[in-house]
């Protein structure tokens, strides 16, 4: 069953088109990464899912309901961490955590204490005196303290230090183990790579790719670094891209279909060492974002 089902979703702010018909599906129990550059439409999509924004066109189903009309019922079943959080300066962190989690349902005090401990958070201070990372923790703890079906995170770790980042990652893994669904928007690609079962890449309001990391890798080029006995000269063959030759070394990316031809060619120059690997998420991401520039 799909927890989030979006098809042909459009949204514009005045003349700027933020979303140009996106399709997105998040299945129950998966950790889904949603990646894209700033302004690509990540937050707009999430805010439509939360009923903060009205869609212009297309279909959006969230937990089987309409995110705008059924927001109260739906919000009892989900928790959200916004990318930017300015909690009320004269409230303490503890009060904000309690307020937000109570408005969602009955929070578990034991879990609250555990999370505060794990995130090394001091809930007794006024929010005005918290650093950016601590303000982020307020929102994270308020969301994680609730036992809900779906967690939506919009760049949740942007202000956290690496230690706290790993605490957050542990929390996500635990939730995944319990069968919860997590929708994680991020541009920390290493984090998405570590946590997510499936990834959707959004660019300029359109989905450019969606699938598991393995699937994405299959459809994309392999990265090859090779060293030969002689300078490599004749590699300008179809399917090889971004060729760079320095002395006896060559590196390039290659379509899976052209790999065999490329390797044969390399052996002609007496290959000394060879490193060939599927691209990391970062390579993929850069690949999709560079696509336009290549075709132009």
């Amino acid at each position: 069953m799909a927890v989030i089902e979006i098809s042909g979703l459009t949204k514009s702010y005045g003349k700027t088109q933020a979303l140009r018909g996106i399709d997105l599906s998040v299945k129950q129990g998966e950790v889904h990464g949603f990646i894209g550059m700033n302004g690509a439409g990540k937050s707009t999509t999430i805010r439509i899912l939360l009923g903060m924004l009205k869609k212009d066109g297309g279909e959006v189903k969230l937990l089987g309901g309409d995110p705008f009309k059924d927001c109260v019922e739906l919000h009892k079943r989900l928790a959200y961490v916004p990318s930017e959080i300015n909690p009320w300066p004269n409230l303490s962190g503890g009060e904000v955590i309690d307020l937000l989690s109570r408005m969602r349902g009955k929070p578990d005090p034991k879990r609250r204490a555990q999370l505060i401990e794990r995130f090394q958070f001091d809930p007794g201070k006024k929010c005005r005196s918290y650093s950016k990372g601590n303000r982020q923790k307020v929102a994270l703890i308020a969301a994680l303290v609730s036992d809900v079906e779906l967690y939506i995170f919009d760049e949740p770790t942007s202000g956290l230090d690496p230690l706290m980042e790993s605490v957050f990652q542990d929390c996500v893994r635990e939730m995944a183990a319990q069968g919860k669904t997590v929708f994680l928007s991020s541009h920390i690609l290493a984090e998405v790579e570590k946590l997510c079962d499936r990834v959707t890449i959004i660019k300029e309001g359109q989905i450019v790719e969606s699938g598991s990391l393995r699937e994405l890798q299959q459809f994309s080029r392999l990265i090859v670094h090779a060293e030969c006995a002689r300078p490599v000269t004749g590699l300008q063959i179809p399917g090889v891209y971004g060729l760079r030759c320095e002395g006896n070394k060559a590196s390039f990316s290659v379509d899976a279909a052209a790999l065999n031809v490329a390797l044969k060619k390399l052996t002609e120059y007496e290959t000394v060492s060879l490193h060939c690997a599927p691209p990391e998420l970062e390579d993929l991401f850069l690949h999709y974002y560079a696509k336009d520039d290549e075709t132009q």
Partner: peptide
């Protein structure tokens, strides 16, 4: 405008 309304409205409230 300080994005605080969003925090509240993401809860189960109309």
């Amino acid at each position: 405008s300080m994005t605080r309304a969003e925090l509240v409205l993401a809860g189960a409230t109309t």
